[in-house]
Design a binder for these strands. Structure first.
Lengths: 209, 209
DNA sequence: CTGCACGCCGATCTTGACCTCCACGGAACC
DNA sequence: GGTTCCGTGGAGGTCAAGATCGGCGTGCAG
């Protein structure tokens, strides 16, 4: 309704399988993001794509598999962004900033794909839980390698710190998006959080006053 | 402990209304915590309490209201703990530590009530979303007052920082609980995160190198 | 002892959503 | 230009789960 400039909603057009599949995935993502898993109906997804339900089931075995396909894409996207951010420089301060910005970009863009990862309503499904947990785990592990190397902490300790930083980025980015604040741009908010994170993590091994 | 040494699961016993209601709430919390909202069946809750379904509906209008009653309790608990932690001292370093520890205590105790708040699978329901958001909002506002007062930042900026700290505490506490790590005690993990948070937030207004 | 009131239970209804069956239409090919 | 084939569409089955009605047993007053 508000913004649905779909690819080609002409009903009755015959598409090659891959194009149809892509269109179905896009439609499904819109519906899942807008309504969550449970409130999303397969009828809605089919209607949204301009096809009928059987075609949906010719491309995906069921609702769960369709959801998992989208979830996997979203998980890979954020993990890849974080890894890319960490690889983008050798300066740790820049690394922190780039990582925080990666989370903000992810939350701001991707047409809400982050909701599948960070606001899923299917976390009781083991397959979903496992993927969602692995995202935080993977991001934190990538961070913890840098932390552990530079701070001389053991694995468990650096993981706790890394998870804290990831949680900070994730929660604050979602908050920033929700209270969609025109007076505080994405860049500024992310810089502020990056500053907080960097002050916290820099030169960590020394025990302060 | 983990198993269920319930109050009085003898089937057929007649309880006064308030006692019955309390028992139903406890049973419902166990089931909701274990299974989430959607996977939790009213039959399970009734069975767990040792009564039949109609009594459940004589005490609560429906599943949602039952859930909201529990959710409200859990929300009030964590917000009260955070406010208490902030009030417990005038030393900001101690404040940070106490707040982080409040989150860890909340996650570790309360027989998993935190799952209703931080891992709810009903966030699409506006009533639930509103309550869950208000928890982060309220905790962050309580923190931001201290931050804003001592750091001289405006409301939006201090709120972003406060939300970041709350997210750090919340996510890291849940991670610590999930990877139930015998080698890293709750105290140590919380202290580590508190150290990270305090390094990050202390003396914030000055812009460093 | 007997009638009454009250809370509880077994069995049932209904809704809603995931998932398939029979008819149509257009394209390709001879 | 006719036939065959494949993808599409609407209508329906199934089932789980939330929500509800007629009996039953217990405790009390007279």
């Amino acid at each position: 309704m508000s913004t649905t400039p779909e690819t080609a909603p002409k009903r009755g057009s015959r598409l090659p399988r891959l194009a149809r599949r892509a269109q179905l995935l896009e439609a499904a993502q819109e519906v899942f993001v807008a309504n969550g898993y449970h409130a999303a109906a397969m009828d809605d997804i089919a209607d949204r794509a301009g096809v009928s339900k059987p075609v949906l089931y010719q491309h995906f075995p069921g609702k769960l598999e369709l959801y998992l396909a989208l979830l996997d894409s979203s998980c890979e996207a954020i993990v890849a962004s974080v890894r890319e951010a960490l690889r983008s420089t050798e300066d740790n301060k820049q690394r922190v900033a780039a990582t925080i910005h990666a989370f903000y970009d992810y939350v701001a863009n991707a047409q809400g794909a982050f909701r599948l990862v960070f606001e899923s309503d299917l976390t009781n499904e083991p397959a979903v839980r496992e993927r969602v947990d692995r995202v935080t785990q993977a991001c934190a592990e990538a961070c913890s390698e840098v932390i552990s190397a530079d701070a001389g902490l053991n694995k468990e300790q650096s993981m706790v710190l890394a998870v804290s930083l990831v949680g900070m980025a994730q929660v604050s980015a979602r908050y920033w998006l929700a209270s969609d604040n025109p007076t505080l741009a994405q860049q500024q908010a992310a810089d502020l959080v990056a500053s907080l994170a960097w002050r916290g993590i820099r030169g960590f091994p020394r025990t302060e006053s």
